[in-house]
Design a protein around this nucleic acid. Structure first.
Lengths: 201, 201
DNA sequence: CACTGAATAATATATTAAATTGTTCAGTTA
DNA sequence: TAACTGAACAATTTAATATATTATTCAGTG
């Protein structure tokens, strides 16, 4: 009798298949073959094909989120943390082709306008990550005293917009320019100093 | 022999039908009946069903754009023009249920991430509208000297995001809050004064 | 000249059978 | 005895075909 397969190995194999063929066109057997098992055997590890897919995607999303979190942890001030977050998120995705393909095939994973979302908890964590940077920045008086919860939602939406452009558009340079201008706008705003309304505090 | 039908009457009739049933489920006869003609007769006015749809949608989009343009024309400074534009765009859509339904049924009309777009020329005009306000504002030294072309693209993307939320989300209050916070962020930015980088000029 | 209505072409829907794939599980194996 | 296989069965997809609906054309009418 063989040792139990490490679940992460299953997710890595499944990720390869799902990224190449998409959910509908990959068979449970495709995944089993990559692991040198039979399809029946996979049901020892996951309930059904759908669950395998959801857990595989979660695995990929969490790996991505983890890298971004690491990048943030390396920085001290809120200003640099916010910029590190944006940079790393785009940079990681540019390098993880499998995740890009998964997202391209199935945009509901990272929906611009979510209705119901099986990955909601992961996305909520991302929003909280933004919120905690904002909170820190407001406390440090680097950021204006904005409504942290609402603004982190707004930023997450804009963040999604840029991310989706990153894997939809093939034009690398275009995305980079868009990215820089968007970040500048969000940090500095449109108004010149004299026109700005400073929120209370 | 009857007088030629006014094309705008055709578009109004078609808009009713397309908004209620969608492109696929409305028949040319549905539209003809609203005009008290036979379906064959409509081919005297339009090439085919697809063209009828595209011209009908264009009619609705241009009416919308016209109202926004009027609202802008009433204002003097770039600052107020920008705010009037945002306000009117959302306000008009909230009131035009047919257009909302058309957009909800067929999101490709106003795509978050356009590939090919039959309404491109209309959307380009919207971007130019934003750009001209920005240009004026930079000249008046109300706005920072940003790259007008790029920033108007960025703003149009964010504008689309808010608009789509407006007809997707049923929750009126949520959209309004989102709208206010987004506008504040874009105008004033996140940084406190001392952290801001003023662009040259 | 604007229009009708019937003819025809093009699409969509429904039905059914055949093939593939997902899932279960009794029995095997290390 | 826990991990596994492979065959059995259920569910789903695909293919093939017939039927019905709808789009489009156009000769003829007022």
């Amino acid at each position: 009798m063989r040792a139990r397969i490490d679940v992460n190995e299953i997710y890595r194999a499944a990720l390869q298949a799902f990224a190449e063929f998409g959910f509908r066109k990959t068979t449970v057997e495709d995944v089993a073959e990559k692991l040198n098992r039979t399809k029946g055997n996979l049901y020892f590890y996951v309930k059904d094909k759908r669950e395998l897919y959801i857990k595989t995607v979660s695995f990929a999303l969490e790996r991505w989120q983890g890298r971004v979190r690491q990048a943030i942890a390396k920085e001290k001030g809120a200003r640099n943390q916010l910029m590190a977050m944006c940079r790393k998120a785009v940079e990681y995705l540019a390098q993880d082709e499998e995740l890009r393909n998964i997202l391209k095939r199935d945009p509901d994973i990272f929906p611009m306008f979510p209705t119901v979302d099986p990955y909601e908890s992961i996305n909520r964590r991302s929003v909280r990550m933004i919120a905690s940077i904002l909170k820190k920045g407001v406390k440090e008086k680097v950021f204006r005293p904005v409504d942290v919860d609402k603004v982190s939602e707004v930023l997450f939406s804009i963040y999604k917009m840029v991310i989706i452009q990153t894997y939809i558009k093939t034009d690398e340079a275009y995305v980079q320019e868009m990215f820089d201008d968007t970040l500048d706008l969000l940090l500095n705003g449109l108004f010149v100093e004299s026109e700005r309304s400073q929120l209370g505090g």
